[in-house]
């Protein structure tokens, strides 16, 4: 499980790969990567589950600072998909749906993945426009730049672009 991390600073890793990262964090962190019209989100962790947790934090950070989200309400999620990548999209879309219908934001996630089955708990609170100053609502997680992969020496990376 993961608590939200400090958001600060910018890292430029290439002309088209300017990222906002939360630093420093050696084992698990999230980033945003640019998309011309929308937003790329990326979670990195030692395990696939951690990467999915971090991707969820990156999702929240599109809307508001995850650090400003209190853990008042708990929601449970269960997803199953034919492969890891579709599972990531399903997981993020389940969060987007819950945020939209419940008028919620989440800042804490605990993900467990077994094969292509995900069980997760998210904690958060109802959107407070003054407190959270939400920047934008997310329409959906997309298959653009979608990837879930293990990188030698870096752990798991889970990423995609979200449509805002």
């Amino acid at each position: 499980m993961v608590q939200n991390m400090t958001t600060s600073g910018f890292t430029t890793t290439g002309q088209h790969m300017m990222t906002i990262v939360n630093e420093p964090e050696p084992s698990a962190w999230w980033e945003h990567f640019p998309h011309e019209a929308d937003m790329g989100i990326r979670g990195i962790g030692i395990t696939k589950s951690q990467a999915f947790e971090q991707a969820a934090l990156a999702l929240t950070a599109v809307i508001t600072d995850p650090e400003e989200v209190a853990s008042q309400v708990e929601s449970h999620f269960s997803c199953e998909a034919p492969d890891d990548e579709l599972l990531l999209v399903d997981w993020l879309n389940a969060l987007i749906y819950e945020m939209a219908c419940g008028h919620m934001v989440f800042g804490w996630f605990d993900v467990k993945i077994n094969d292509h089955h995900l069980e997760a708990v998210a904690r958060g609170e109802p959107v407070d426009r003054k407190k959270h100053e939400p920047a934008v609502e997310i329409k959906g997680a997309t298959y653009t730049e979608l990837s879930v992969r293990h990188m030698e020496g870096r752990g798991w990376v889970a990423q995609c672009v979200v449509d805002v």
């Binding site: 034919p82 579709l86 999209v89 399903d90 879309n93 987007i96 749906y97 939209a100 329409k139 959906g140 997680a141 997309t142 298959y143 653009t144 979608l146 449509d163």
Partner: peptide
């Protein structure tokens, strides 16, 4: 947004059954 999300996935999963090779899954 929800219709787009749901049918995109249905079409991705069903593409092979229709003999469609997608150069990009987003073209579902």
């Amino acid at each position: 947004h929800q219709i787009g999300t749901e049918y995109l996935k249905k079409m991705v999963v069903a593409a092979s059954q229709y003999g469609i090779t997608l150069p990009d899954r987003e073209l579902a």
